[in-house]
Each structure stands twice: as C-alpha cells, then as structure tokens.
Design a protein around this nucleic acid. Structure first.
Lengths: 249, 249
DNA sequence: GATTTATTTTGATTGATTTTGATTTTTTAA
DNA sequence: TTAAAAAATCAAAATCAATCAAAATAAATC
C-alpha cells in the first residue's frame, strides 16, 4: 500500500471512529507503531486530525477555529508569509483611524497584531467583533443577516448600515485579483457588502498572498485601482501600473 | 480508551447530567478516583466544566463569567431549575415567529434548546448570534457599539436598528424584578436597548429564577406589566395581580 | 536496459516522558 | 471532631521522540 494512500485511509478511519489508539491502527493497517506515529504526526501537522497521547481523534468543530498551526504546518501552508501581511497591515493603523475590517480569515489573522487602542474599529464579521473585544478595542459591529458558513453579516440592512459611516481605512480580503475583473469573490451578497465598504473608505487595503493574483471569482466588488494591495511576493509590472502594491518580505 | 477521548466523554456526560459525583464517573468510565480527579482538574482549567467538592457540574450560563471557587449543592440545584426555564422558553417559539433574543447569560442558555428552524431570530448578543448560527438557524444581528464585558451590542445605532423591526416574541434577561421599579438592570446603555426591544415586541418574556424577585438594579427598562415572567418557584400574589407568570417545575 | 548512487520509508531499539492507581497526608464540610 | 474528599507522592506500565540500519523506491550514469 502506498504511504499516501494509507494516510488518507487513516484520516477516514479516524473521522469515522472519532478516536482511535495507535495499536488499533497498527492492526488495521498492518504497520509498526513507529510508522503509525509518523503518519499521525504528519496528519496532525496538516491539521487533518488531532494527535493525542495514545492515538488520535478527529478534529471537533471547536478545534478548527482555535487550533494554532504548528511549526511544520506553517511551512506547508504559507502561514509565515500570510503572517507578515497581517502584521504589516496592522501596523498601518493610526490613533485617529476609523477602521473597517472585512469578514474572512485573512483579516481575522490581522486582528492578532492590532494594538492601537485609540483607533475605532467596525466589522461585519461576528468572530472578528469577538476577537476585537477580547483585545479591549473600541469595537462596533454592522447589523444584518448572518451567513452561517462564514459567520459574516450581509444583506440590505448591512449595506444600509455601512452607508452611515465613513472609514479612514478598510482592510479587505479577496478571492481573486485580476487587472480586468478587479477584486472578485464567490458570493453575491458578500460582494455587495464589500463593494459598499470600499466605497465608504478613504483608503482600502486588500490583504492577499501571491496566489490570488490572476484568479477571477464570480462577482467583482471593486476595480483594481480602487484599493492598495498588501502581498508577499513581487508580482508582474502590469499590476504595478494599475495600483499601489506593498510587498512585505 | 484514550485519555483525551475519556475527557471528552466526561464533558459530554457532565453537560447531559448537569452534575455528577466522582464515584459516578469512576463507575461510568472504569477509572480510579485519582484519574477522574485529575481529569476534572484539567477540564476545569480548560473551562469546560466546573469542579466542585465531590464531583463536577456543567458550566451553567450564570457561571460562565463569574467563576466561583466552590458551588454548594444548593447552587447546583439552581442550575437544573434555570435549565427548566430555558427549556420552557424555547418551547414557546412557533414556526412564523420573529424572535428577539436579548444579550445576557440567561438567554444564551436558552439557545441550547431552540430547535425551530422555521422561525427567524435576531439578537444583540455576539455570542448569541454565533450560537444561533451554529444551530443553522435563520439569524440576524443588530448593529452598533460592542460592550466588552458582556459582549452585547448597545448604543444609538443599536436602538435605531431595533426600531426598524417588529418582533412577535422577545426573550429578555433582567437583574431585578420589582412591583414598583419594574424590570431593572445595572447598565444604562443596556437598559435603553432592552427598553426599545420590549417596545417593539408583541409579547416579551422575562427569563428569571426566583432570586430576582424583589431585587432592584439601577435602571428600569420596562414596567412590570409589560412582560410575562417565566420563573422556577411560586412567587407572591402581588406579582400575580400585575402580570402573567409561568412557573416551571 | 543494467548498474550505481541518492532518497525515502520502514521497523527495531533506546532512554525520556506521560499516564495511571495505590498509598499517605492534608483539606473540607457538616 | 469526624468522616469523606482532595491533593501530594511514588512506582509501575504505557507511550513517545530520537536514532539508526535495512529495505524499498527513485534518480542518475553508463
């Protein structure tokens, strides 16, 4: 049996059983304890299971959000580079800023590094609001319909809510960056909210690692020139001629 | 059985039973008293249960913020009664309802028992919104300023937000119930929000255990007659002459 | 295609770490 | 004060991470 095949099967096995011992896996896959342990270490670093003393368990829903990536997982997931983007973005916040923070995982990362307690923060992410509050920052949340999958607030009430405000800075996530299609995202409702947020911000920053360049998702929420991009690798000249790009490395 | 697996099961077991003894857990999981005690200590430190003399209890909503060192048998009894209040309140929700859920620990507890997926829910509690979403319910959140201590949304934007809606049912928490002072709470901003919510609800329910009767906090948010009370012990006739009281037991 | 040379995977061995239950001492509630 | 419960201590058992050599696989060379 292939190593990769065995590991895939182990993940399935654990997800089905919820908790298994090393011995159980040794019997099931006819491999030594060392091999099983190595497999579990790898799968743990890939965040596919949870390695515990004596065996492994499946990732419970609560773990998915709270688990900090391990060192080796960081390497494979480009977390280090994304961290640099987050850190730089957070450093842009000044005392008098009124900051909009878009929902999504990229911007959530950024909150970790925010430490300016004089600025005011507003967000359409439920988890984002919670994290901001935990740091004792001056936090507001936009009202509206809540989307289960992303825990983002969307809908007409949300857009109307944004209209009342004028942000000095908006920090946005995106699924794709393209010269012609601009910034794009898969969900129409979320796109409408993002569009309104960018429109009401003095400066909008897009937080995106290099893999997002050239990608196009279903709905455009802003033109390429309407936002500054913060990214991790040098990109083509075409982009540089269209908008301001900060490369952190 | 894995250590982690046993601990996870212990948490589930405690949450289901609300209160258990060490001996009960020893039988159930076939482990020594030392092991069970160690498990309880770890789970207590992880804030997953509440270790008490003789055993452990689940984290009731009221304990989440104010960790008491030890809880007497009396207090654990209260937990069960509060649970009954929550359960009964949740059972009042019908298919076509547009339900307002007030921030606060009592109402948070109630969400556990909500299972009507046809009704619509709106709340000013950040954690409440998250819990509702986790149950895949049709959820909205009111926008506004976020208060760090209680993770509630308050302020003028919040009140204005509520004005747009008309709830069929509102479920409210309170700090005090008094014939003359009505329903009271310590924070002015939260009181203003509660006041507006009750005003915009067809029926408002107050979820309160018997200890709240006769208490008066700083700010009144509604008259005694404007809400139905759901409580756990028979109370004086004076109250009954003023409003509808449902006693669950 | 055959042979040689790296690389990867595996299983066994080792000492270190973790978990556990028994025992003793201390603390707690009544 | 007293009986029950909790904490501290300790030794045995189980498990783990690190290391190394053998086997399997891949790459390079002829």
């Amino acid at each position: 049996m292939l190593t990769q095949e065995r590991r895939d099967l182990i993940v399935s096995y654990i997800n089905e059983k919820n908790a298994v011992t090393v011995n159980e896996l040794m019997e099931e896959f006819d491999a030594s304890a060392a091999t099983i342990r190595r497999d579990l270490s790898v799968l743990h670093d890939e965040r596919k299971i949870l390695k515990v003393f004596g065996g492994a368990t499946s990732l419970s829903a609560s773990d998915v959000n709270t688990l900090e990536p391990t060192v080796s997982a960081k390497a494979t997931l480009n977390v280090e580079e994304k961290d640099l983007i987050s850190k730089y973005a957070a450093s842009l916040i000044n005392d008098d800023d009124f900051v909009y923070i878009d929902s999504g995982t990229t911007t959530l990362e950024m909150i970790k590094y925010i430490d300016n307690a004089k600025a005011k923060y507003i967000t359409n992410g439920i988890v984002h609001a919670k994290k901001l509050l935990e740091k004792n920052l001056n936090t507001m949340i936009i009202g509206g319909r809540c989307k289960a999958a992303t825990e983002a607030i969307i809908g007409p009430d949300c857009i109307e809510g944004i209209r009342k405000y004028h942000f000095t800075k908006a920090f946005m996530g995106t699924n794709g960056i393209s010269i012609n299609a601009g910034y794009t995202t898969p969900d129409v409702d979320e796109a409408l909210v993002k569009e309104e947020a960018v429109r009401h911000a003095y400066i909008s920053y897009i937080l995106a690692d290099h893999s997002k360049f050239g990608q196009i998702s279903s709905v455009t929420f802003a033109d390429i020139s309407s936002c500054c991009i913060i990214t991790d690798k040098e990109v083509g000249k075409n982009y540089h001629s269209k908008t301001i790009i900060k490369v952190v490395e």
